[in-house]
Amino acid sequence: MSAIVQNLLGPGWPWVRLLLYLAGIGAFVGANAAYLVLAERKIAGRIQRRPGPNEAGFGGWMQPFADVGKLFAKQMMIPPGTDRLLYCLAPLMVMAPPLICLTVIPYGENLVARNVDVGLLLVFSFGSINVMALMLAGWASRNKFAIISSARVVSQNVAYEIPMLLVVITLLMATGTLNLNEIVGQQGGWFWNWNFFRVWVNPLMPVTFVIFFICMLAETNRAPFDMAEAESELVAGAFTEYGGMGFGVFFMAEYANIVVGCSIATVLFFGGWQSPFVVLSGPVFGPLWFMVKLYALVFTVMWVRWTFPRTQFYNLLNLSWKILIPISLFTLLLTGAMMKLPLLLHHLF
């Protein structure tokens, strides 16, 4: 019996591994989307001194099932005048990129679906498709709110992609690799080896993280940058015309994107599956540490959402072009200088 299991999981059967990871990532995304919605509502409630959803099932824990049941029971309507094909494709397009991104995230030392050499690049390139999908959803809906929302999504994402990539490049100069697992591997040992605390590489590392985090909020269209879904102005933004599970998929994708973004932040800045104190590491505790860090960041995302009101649109763009981009350019230069200065000094003297 054990031989069979060994055989199934061993390197001899890569396609079993493939199927396991497919199922695993599917389940991970589904469970996250379902329960992060609940967590969000609970956290929102606690911050506002109320209990949040507490009726469905054990103190509200069955709420996601009730929600999903409701969404499935609803009819998926295609309003007249829409671009049918694009309208139906958009939910798929918005869901696919985070699923692809999750394949390269190292959850543990050996727990990565595919250890791609250019994993980080993969995450960013497929992350950028998300915009396209939202925009097509807005356009295909043939609804003025949806189109306004799409236009906002694009200008917002274009503006925030730049500081995001600059910051990541800063980090890449320090790590020298695009392989996410190797980046984590470099941050072993005590927690001061995490990129977040590595001020000897670049004294502005914490600032770099803050910029990354702000850009992540903007890229995933989260409050205070949720222009795409400004419900008080634009009904539901790009998803206005969607109902039932079509809407549900957009919702799931939003949370899947948050999970991807926070995973990347964990990997890049907080040492992924590394234990903060040399002890308690290994194949069991590694994924556990990863999850702790991941959900701490997810909590922060929600915490930010329920703290700050939505920004105005020009403020949003000003923040990116006038503050984030100059600072991230400066950190980029600083990192370069600090890396090459010893070399220069060595040559001179």
Binding site: I43, G45, R46, R49, R50, P51, V304, T307
Partner: peptide, 24 residues
């Protein structure tokens, strides 16, 4: 500006850990 943002976040976190005051 950034410090004021942090202050805001500190306040909401403080509220987060306080007991619920609404009537069910």
């Amino acid at each position: 500006g950034f410090m004021s943002l942090l202050t805001g976040m500190r306040i909401t976190l403080g509220q987060f850990f306080k007991p619920i005051i609404t009537v069910q």
